[in-house]
Amino acid sequence: MNTFFSADYVLPSTGKAIKDGIVEISEDGIIRGIYTPDNPMVSGKAIAKHHGIITPGFVNAHCHLELSHMKGVIPKHTGLIPFLQQVMSLRTTDELQITNAMKAADKQLYDNGIVAVGDHANTSVSAAVKAASKIYYHTFVEVLGFEPELASQKLTAAIGIANEFGNESPSITAHAPYSVSKELFKLLNEESFQRKKPLSIHNQESEAENQLFRYKTGQFLDFYKALGKDITDFKAQARNSLQTFMPYLSLDTPVLLVHNTYTSSKDIFFIERQGRNVTWCFCPNANLYIEGILPKLKNFIHYRHDITLGTDSLASNDRLCILSELKTVHQHFPDLSLTETIKWATINGARFLGIADKYGSLETGKSPGLNLLTHTQGLALTPDTEVVRLV
């Protein structure tokens, strides 16, 4: 038996908002119709009416499930490099503790209306949790290797980890420009082509990253020294990190660039001019947690490339909640419209992950999940808005 849900507005993400709209859902979660209130197809039907906005289930484009046991452990506003140092020292602990934390995080994601996640992993420890989850996960096995001579070895190890995810076919991706050599970037580009899978790369999360690539100065030199890494052969590039590493990748390689906190207008134009297959991902609450600063979002929205939202991990966020990310975006950029940013939270992430045939928008034949945003004001969020999962 099908169920009919209605709210003050239905916001499909790929079409116009429908005032007092109605969504028909089958027992197995497939959308059978979307209607205006005067449509004869809903005449005489029992309709579950709600106050608020009905949206598709959220897509969290960037997360680190395996860091969930670090919730509340690392202080806020440390800056990126001290944060990285603490993650590296704290990530190895009792596996049962890690697993239990991941299970709780997976439930939190689900309860917060998230239906799909792009998740970074350095090990296979999350495989069993993901296999048992109600959420769709695309795993990005993350590779680190700044030493050119270790590039092949690092890729081989990552392939071994990817094979432990069973039937899932993960991507194998670079961690960040400051942790991956040119040689390894090129190998990862080839691997992406062979697997027909996208890449997801942390980008310009700190100004120190740009300083390293432009001038070979800054905090990263001390970071490498503390790790015992010899970067004598690394040369200053006289340009930001983004403009340095992207030419190592093919123009049509699908890449999610994550964080972009210190990405300049020139960097954005560099991507646009080259016509690259790039999607931008912002994790505003994590940016505030670590660096205390947000990307200049308005520099990105006038170009053709899609924008997505992520939560990052519980090591750098209080909640795994895309609604919380939306609320932060609208708090700091109040002139943005929810009819636009809802795409960042749904269909754009689904398109990047290659699952838009099922997720990301309210369209007949799809099963994207159904969220109700409560305590809204027209088509706008308020500080009291919460998400209720309807389907």
Rank of each mutant, 00 (worst) to 15 (best):
224 Y>H: 04
8 D>W: 01
316 S>H: 03
261 T>P: 02
277 N>C: 13
352 F>M: 00
1 M>H: 14
165 F>K: 12
283 C>I: 08
86 Q>S: 11
334 P>G: 10
227 L>W: 05
137 Y>L: 04
261 T>G: 05
116 A>N: 01
166 G>D: 14
246 M>N: 07
152 S>W: 00
277 N>M: 08
258 V>W: 00
52 G>E: 14
375 H>V: 08
320 L>F: 02
384 D>A: 15
370 L>V: 10
293 I>L: 11
367 S>I: 05
76 K>T: 02
185 F>E: 02
259 H>P: 01
56 P>C: 12
149 E>S: 14
163 N>R: 12
39 N>W: 08
100 N>F: 05
274 Q>R: 12
168 E>Y: 06
201 I>N: 01
337 S>K: 15
211 Q>D: 10
30 I>Q: 11
51 H>S: 15
311 T>R: 06
328 T>A: 08
206 S>A: 15
51 H>W: 03
183 E>S: 10
300 F>M: 14
166 G>A: 14
99 T>P: 05
381 L>G: 09
58 F>Q: 09
235 K>M: 12
41 M>D: 12
209 E>C: 05
240 N>G: 15
239 R>V: 13
27 E>Q: 09
95 E>H: 02
68 S>F: 06
214 R>P: 02
28 D>F: 02
76 K>I: 01
330 H>R: 11
20 D>P: 01
221 L>Q: 07
121 A>C: 14
344 W>Q: 08
239 R>N: 14
336 L>I: 12
255 V>L: 04
251 L>I: 12
76 K>A: 03
74 I>R: 06
226 A>F: 04
157 A>L: 13
3 T>Y: 09
263 T>Q: 09
287 N>C: 11
313 S>T: 03
54 I>G: 04
168 E>A: 14
320 L>Q: 02
349 G>W: 00
69 H>W: 06
315 A>H: 02
180 V>H: 10
345 A>C: 07
203 N>I: 12
14 T>I: 13
59 V>L: 06
121 A>F: 02
